[in-house]
């Protein structure tokens, strides 16, 4: 299984999300996460998918099938580009007076923030690459995780692509 990050712009019409996720179900593609939101252009949304696929052929099929949707404007598999990948997580962790300080120190290198404080819990907010979030969650686990909410990955190609990067992304217009 390989992980691919696919971004696309779509017309912001009723049912578009349904159409896309329906396509994933119909074709038996395995979605790990989806994020959707507005773009700078009115009426156009951006979606970012992380999918697990068996091989390159399936990855190519996904982009091609997505591209056939009338409301899909552009699909790019950006996995192999120089990209910025971000996710946000809210982590509610159990605290005691004894562990409170420890947690504060622990999250510091992650540049995470405490966004809610209660007598027996804290809510930590962290952004970054999904692996960083995994790492923080792992560290907090021993204290007792009460709740975790993750947004899923959103991603962007960087402004300038490294010249030497193996740029295999599939542009199909």
């Amino acid at each position: 299984m390989v992980k691919r990050i696919i971004t696309m712009t779509v017309n912001n019409r009723p049912g578009v999300l349904n159409r896309i996720t329906g396509l994933f179900t119909k074709r038996h593609y395995n979605i790990e996460s989806i994020t959707v939101g507005h773009t700078e252009a009115e009426g156009i949304s951006r979606m970012t998918f992380v999918v697990n696929v068996d091989d390159e052929r399936i990855a190519e099929q996904i982009t091609k099938q997505l591209n056939k949707q009338i409301d899909v404007l552009k699909v790019v598999d950006i996995t192999d580009q120089a990209i910025i990948v971000r996710e946000l997580a809210l982590i509610k962790v159990a605290v005691t007076p004894a562990t409170r300080g420890e947690i504060y120190t622990l999250i510091e290198p992650f540049r995470a923030a405490i966004v809610d404080v209660a007598r027996d819990s804290l809510v930590v907010q962290v952004t970054g690459e999904p692996e960083k979030i995994d790492a923080l969650i792992d560290l907090l686990k021993p204290y007792g995780l009460k709740e975790v909410a993750r947004t899923g990955t959103t991603a962007f190609p960087r402004g300038s692509q490294r010249a030497s990067s193996t740029n295999k992304s599939l542009f199909i217009i």
Partner: peptide
């Protein structure tokens, strides 16, 4: 009908 037929149409509309 839109939901039912999404995977079996090339495209579909509901007039709003």
């Amino acid at each position: 009908v839109l939901g039912i037929t999404m995977p079996i149409t090339k495209h579909s509309y509901q007039v709003r």
